Amino acid sequence: MSPVIEKPLAARVQVIAHRGASAHLPEHTLAAYARAIDDGADFIEPDLVMTRDGALVSRHENEISGTTDVAAHAEFASRRTTKTIDGVAVEGWFTEDFTLAELKTLRARERLPELRGTAHDGLFPVATFAEIVALAAACGRTVGIIPEIKHGTYFRNIGLPMEDALLDALAAHAYTRAAPVEIQSFEVGNLKYLDGERKRRGMANLHLLQLLGESHEQPFDVVAVGGALDYAAMTTPQGLREIAAYADAIGPSTRAVLPLTQDGRLGAATALVRDAHATGLEVHVYTLRPENAFLPPALRDGDDLHQRNEAGSLAEMHALLDAGIDAFFTDDPALGRKAVDGRGASAGK
């Protein structure tokens, strides 16, 4: 076991259900969120995009051919198109070309069918953010909600800005006026705007998470104005101090905290957790998944990349807990709960 090099800032490490219990059910569906709640998640995570009529819906991307049955709907065939999203040409069907009523005629599909099968395809509709809030509010315990604004600059440029719509949706429900809420974005400008708005509106329960991509990548709102800032600069001590001026946490990848050695093992922790904590920022890492394909080679069980490997996933979680993280995103919140609660029990002995 790796030595503890940093204690979390959080009083209790939080288990975040990545798009719901998406290791078991199609992501971003009410069924996946309900299972995540039953499995003990502290937070559920809806990625948010917008419909043509301004509804916030939960999809990982605004292009929906991979996660719905839209291609099977002849009535929507003419809406297949190619768009440039964050500088990349993408072909398919896009949420902003559909009304909410039209999207509700579609059914969700498994995004990783080769790993997780298709047994639940066609069973569940696209969920709205309002429905997810209502589900959390009715679950009988306090479950946080951690929405991510997807492609904020893109949606703003087509006349569908999400930031105020999300704040208004949070303010409209008694549950999200009091329960833990944390808004995420890979962009910077919208988080700075949200920081100002949460203070102006008195939203004391609202926290902000600055997501971090690969070191060489840039936030797209920076790209859009020809800026030079990249994620590498944002993870320096100075960059982290600048983030701490508007956000409460950073969201790096697991490998930014625990890089791999040449032989595929988890290496020593980087300075990122320690440096972030020194500025008062929590560290919420993404994403833990239970299949061999997503695990460090040294933690895999056999050569079948499709195989579910609970022991390997728990080992990776434990190593991240040892590194002092404050929260982690996982496709299998039941495993996450086991890792956190088991570590707490061991620490108490």
Rank of each mutant, 00 (worst) to 15 (best):
M1F: 03
E6M: 12
K7R: 15
R19Y: 05
S22D: 08
P26R: 04
H28M: 05
H28C: 04
H28Q: 13
L30N: 11
A31L: 04
Y33W: 08
A36C: 03
D42H: 11
F43Y: 13
I44D: 03
G66N: 13
T68W: 04
D69C: 08
V70L: 03
V70D: 06
E75M: 04
F76R: 07
T81Q: 15
T81P: 07
K83W: 05
D86W: 11
V88T: 15
W93G: 08
W93I: 09
E102L: 02
R111D: 01
L112Q: 12
E114Y: 09
G122T: 09
F124L: 06
A127C: 13
F129S: 06
V143R: 05
V143G: 08
I146R: 14
E148M: 04
I149Q: 11
I149G: 03
H151Q: 14
T153Y: 03
Y154E: 05
R156F: 00
L160F: 04
M162Y: 03
A169C: 11
A171Y: 01
A171S: 13
A174R: 14
F186R: 04
G189E: 13
K192G: 00
Y193M: 10
L194Y: 02
G196W: 04
K199N: 09
R200G: 04
M203G: 00
M203N: 02
A204H: 12
L209V: 11
L212T: 01
G213N: 11
S215Y: 14
F220K: 01
A224E: 13
V225G: 02
A228H: 09
D230R: 05
D230P: 02
A233P: 02
L240F: 02
I243N: 06
A249H: 07
A249K: 08
I250A: 06
L258T: 02
D263W: 00
G264C: 11
A269K: 02
T270D: 01
R274M: 00
T279W: 00
G280F: 08
V283I: 02
V283M: 12
H284L: 04
H284E: 05
E291L: 12
P296R: 08
P297A: 12
D301C: 06
L305E: 12
Q307K: 15
N309P: 06
A311G: 07
A311N: 05
E316S: 04
A319V: 08
L320G: 10
L321V: 07
A323V: 07
F329H: 06
V340I: 12
R343N: 09
G344K: 11
G344W: 04
K349R: 14
